[in-house]
Amino acid sequence: MHCREEIETLYRYLDHELDEGEQTRFELHMRACVDCLRRFYYELHFQTVVVQTLHENEVPPTLVERIRLALHES
């Protein structure tokens, strides 16, 4: 990893927090920098796996029903 200073930019890129100019600059940088490109795929993969895992849980229908009833009683 040569681009330690870029890690913050990479996270902001992944989190859609860069403005258009910063985004273009970072994409150009990744074209030239294999380390950053690899790191990008690694972080993207990590985020995807985590979000998939977190999003597996369904809300219990009994909870939704309980809340609906409570709203109607209040």
Partner: peptide, 23 residues
């Protein structure tokens, strides 16, 4: 509701408290 519940579940670390928190 689903989004609130799954966040509550990871925050409280158990189903019972998560349901309470969301409600």
């Amino acid at each position: 509701m689903r989004m609130l519940f799954r966040t509550a579940l990871r925050l409280t670390r158990n189903q019972h408290d998560a349901e309470d928190l969301v409600q």
